[in-house]
Every structure is written in C-alpha cells, then in structure tokens.
C-alpha cells in the first residue's frame, strides 16, 4: 500500500527538516537462512536527497546500516511547496525513489 520511501519535509527555523523511511531488507551477505544457506548481500550503497533538483545530501552507505533505514537530516533554506526527493541505489542495481513537498 505504501511506496518504498516515505518522506516528510517540514520547515524548522531557518532550514528544512527531512525525515525518510526506506523499505529495504539491507542483507549483509553474512546471514544464513533456516536451511543454512547464505542469504545473498543486498544493501543500499548510495542515497541522494534533492531540494528542487539540487543535491543536498549525497551519501555512500554499506552493509552496516539496518533494515528499513530511517534517515533524518536538515538543510538550510527551503520554502513551503518546494519539492524534496529521496532516492537510493542498492548493490544489485535496484533503485527506490520518493518525493514530497515541504510543508
């Protein structure tokens, strides 16, 4: 029922507070399933946050980040109605993207 990223962007002080929840299993490649088979690595390697198409966060992630990562960040500026986008890329080439408007 929900997209793969849920985002909230709110003006706070002289900046904008962004919160995002990404749906991703973040498998390390080290875990085994019930039958003892190794579960293949599958984790987000890159995350981008843009504000009106300008990059405000460009991050490299690894296998140490938890499943369903929750991201919180602030950037200076922003006004109501501006578009904030969050996107990720994982080690298998899979991507996820979501956007919201600042409120």
């Amino acid at each position: 029922m929900a997209s793969r990223i849920r985002i909230r962007a709110q003006l706070k002080g002289d900046g904008c507070e962004v919160k995002a929840l990404m749906r991703h299993p973040m498998e390390t490649g080290l875990r085994k399933d019930q039958l003892g088979e190794t579960i293949p690595a599958r984790f987000i390697t890159a995350v981008k946050v843009t504000h009106n198409d300008k990059i405000v966060l460009d991050a490299f992630w690894g296998a140490a980040v938890s499943a369903n990562p929750f991201l919180g960040m602030r950037f200076k500026g922003g006004s109501v109605g501006d578009v904030v986008k969050v996107s990720w890329l994982d080690n298998q080439g899979d991507t996820g993207e979501g956007e919201t408007q600042i409120r």
């Binding site: 900046g15 973040m26 390390t28 504000h51 009106n52 300008k54 990059i55 405000v56 966060l57 991050a59 992630w61 296998a63 140490a64 980040v65 938890s66 499943a67 990562p69 929750f70 991201l71 919180g72 960040m73 602030r74 950037f75 200076k76 500026g77 922003g78 006004s79």
Partner: peptide, 14 residues
C-alpha cells in the same frame, strides 16, 4: 538558501 548544509544525520546501525 539551498546551501545543502547537513546539520544532522541519523542512521540506524545494525
């Protein structure tokens, strides 16, 4: 106003 200064970043670490 779009300086992109990252003031806080919270990740949940496995």
């Amino acid at each position: 106003w779009c300086a992109g200064i990252l003031s806080s970043l919270l990740l949940l670490l496995a």
